[in-house]
Amino acid sequence: MKTLLGLVLAVGILLPSAAVAQNAEPDLKAGKATFVKWCAPCHGEGIYMTGTNALRAKYKDAKPALLEQRTDLTPEFVKGFVRKGAGLMAPFRKTEISDAELDALAAYLSRKEPR
């Protein structure tokens, strides 16, 4: 993942004008990649998705059970859960999700145009 992030950063260095023109886009792509790798196995779609099922039970129909469909998440909220955990979900260490990756993940999940 650090290699992937390094690649994203390197592309940003090589193409500064493109990176500036589409300011938030690289973050969201990196954030999506972190979500797919670390969050989707529990918070994706499927019958045995423990995170999705737990949130469905908790919120009923008040909020989407899928994190990617939420519009009420803030970066701080996402970061808090990733670093502190909740219930069965153990926290994620910085060697797993680095601070930079967490910034990108938080930006991705708190975007206001959910999937």
Partner: peptide, 27 residues
């Protein structure tokens, strides 16, 4: 749907085992 280990048993990693025990909050 009838085999919580079905995907894992095909060599595809999963976290489905954590769904055993339902949706009650667990610590």
């Amino acid at each position: 749907p009838d085999d919580v280990f079905g995907k894992t048993a095909l060599g595809i990693p999963s976290l489905s085992i954590f769904s055993l025990g339902g949706t009650t909050r667990r610590d």
